[in-house]
Design a protein around this nucleic acid. Structure first.
Length: 485
RNA sequence: GGCGCUAUCGUCUAGGGGACUAGGACGGGGCCCUCUCAAGGCCCAAACACGGGUUCGAAUCCCGUUAGCGCUACCA
């Protein structure tokens, strides 16, 4: 008679961990952590055809990355096959279920015919009316059979934690199959059987299961167990309002991990998709999320997944996260890009570049440029050190004409006078603004060429900081190469 | 077709009979800051699906309509 909730996340390992599943897992986790309850992880692998070990691993890794940890499991549904069968046979013995000898072919034909007449197909329950000795005869003859639940003519209703009262009528539902002819359980039986065995108190799952719920309630009642609390969380849609699928681009949490999304940002974003703490709060790091979470705050309507807002949120988390925490991620990306470890202080560079990044990938790309100015790499390229600079840079060069290189040379001459000691953002700012004033140069006409020479682009932190972060040696070298000296 | 679910700016949402001239955030537009781009600050455009009720009063409660979605397997 424990009163702490027991919830479960029960993915089937037939694909990677999708954002919809991830969010369902997150809601379960949030609920468990908020209430001091227990989260059980159960892998629903009863579909032997499509389930793979690789998928299971990917799902577990995805959850771990997200920071969703579980207290029990992972359990594999396949391991409970004997219990499932025992439950079905008990129902059979108690007359709450019956053997059905209809073959798949007969059923398919009946279904096709109904469709042809544009009528709803209903299983007519013919096998439920078979005389006992007829049943015995067929069993003795080795005729294969499935087991169907006798659907009661009763109201099957529950008070959904997110939708409120939902009600079905038993007479609208078929006597559905609970055990296949090979003796394995059908999903609905397996779920109920396992949820009972695991003493699950709250079933929090996707909206697509609401029509399974009355069947499962019928099963709970037939098995003589109390029904848990159900909460059905709405689906996630693509930007076109259709169910989110591969054709919308990235849908697996692994995709977002590879794009350099931070787990905390992903968690925050997913939580806000269909859930709100009320009020205007949006940036909710882990502890707040748990503190504020409640099933009642879940929206009953489906939500559109907006990757743009995810990236914005990731940018917010990026600026909140200290460079030291970002370092391992950035280092990994740099390794992936083949940038050698130069023993340089990456922290200062990360800090310089952080506000202009939305993903870790972004961040790493910009760090790379500051580690190894592209002009140095391309010093001997056929198009010259600035040949690969971006479009806006080329436009600037064209616009300034000879002044571009002349101003660069002017800056170089002045900067060479700055010694290593003085090579700080403050000092460099002073040197450059003085220089501009003395030569009557517009600040931009002096700064932008430097920026282009150093980064091959027109976007960066302030030039004095850029020079400081790149360091004296590489900065001067890149400028020299760029003026063709 | 049957059964069920859903409906507030383009998107995520606040709101739960009077506090609504409907609030916030993303995205969009503008301004400030500024050597560029971000970040940040300020401002603007942008929504209660429709029709009936109930009520002194409805985004909010009820009923319809419409639309979207889900399920209708010896899949999960």
């Amino acid at each position: 008679m424990s009163s702490t909730p027991r919830v479960r996340f029960a993915p089937s390992p037939t694909g990677s961990l999708h954002v919809g599943g991830a969010r369902t897992a997150l809601f379960n986790w949030l609920f468990a952590r908020k209430t001091g309850g227990t989260l059980v992880l159960r892998i629903e692998d009863t579909d032997r055809e499509r389930s793979t070990e690789a998928h299971t691993r990917v799902i577990l890794e995805g959850l771990t990355w997200l920071g969703v940890d579980w207290d029990e499991g992972p359990f594999f549904q396949g391991a409970s096959a004997a219990q499932h069968r025992a439950d079905a046979e008990r129902l059979l013995a108690e007359g709450k279920a019956y053997r059905c000898f209809c073959t798949r072919e007969e059923l398919d034909a009946a279904r096709a015919e109904a469709e042809h007449r544009r009528e709803a197909f209903r299983y007519d329950g013919r096998c439920s009316r078979l005389a006992p000795d007829e049943v015995d005869r067929r069993v003795a003859a080795g005729q294969p059979f499935t087991i169907r639940l006798r659907m009661p003519d009763a109201e099957l209703a529950w008070d959904d934690a997110v939708h409120g009262p939902i009600s079905f009528q038993g007479r609208d539902l078929d006597d559905f199959v609970i055990l296949r002819s090979d003796g394995t359980a059908i999903y609905n039986l397996a779920v109920v059987s396992d949820d009972i065995a695991m003493r699950i108190t709250h079933v929090i799952r996707g909206d697509d299961h609401v029509s399974n719920t009355p069947k499962q309630i019928a099963l709970y009642r037939a098995l003589g167990h109390d029904v848990p609390i159900f909460g059905h969380v709405p689906m996630i849609l693509g930007t076109d309002g259709k169910k989110l699928s591969k054709r919308h681009g990235a849908t697996a949490v692994g995709d977002y991990q590879n794009q350099g999304i931070l787990p905390a940002a992903m968690r925050n974003f997913l939580a806000l998709l269909g859930w709100s703490p009320g009020g205007d709060r949006e940036i909710l790091p882990g502890p707040e999320l748990i503190e504020l979470f409640s099933l009642e705050g879940i929206q009953p309507k489906p939500a559109v997944f907006d990757p743009v807002k995810l990236e914005w949120m990731n940018g917010q988390y990026l600026s909140m996260t200290p460079a030291s925490e970002l370092l391992p991620e950035v280092r990994r990306e740099l390794d992936r890009m083949g940038v050698p470890d130069l023993g340089r202080d990456l922290l200062a560079i990360i800090d310089a570049v952080k506000p202009r990044s939305r993903t870790v990938l972004d961040l790493a790309r910009q760090v790379r440029v500051r580690l190894v100015p592209p002009a140095l790499e391309l010093a001997n390229a056929p198009n010259g050190p600035l040949g690969a600079a971006d479009e806006k840079s080329q436009a600037l060069m064209k616009k300034l004409g000879p002044a571009f290189v002349a101003n660069l040379q002017t800056a170089l001459d002045a900067l060479e006078q700055v010694n290593d000691e003085e090579w700080t953002a403050e000092r460099l700012h002073q040197v450059l603004t003085d220089l501009a004033k003395r030569r009557s140069l517009k600040l931009g006409d002096l700064m932008q060429p430097i920026r282009v020479a150093l980064t091959h682009g027109t976007v960066s932190e302030p030039v004095n900081e850029l020079l400081a972060v790149i360091g004296r040696g590489p900065s001067l070298e890149a400028l020299r190469v760029s003026v063709g000296g």
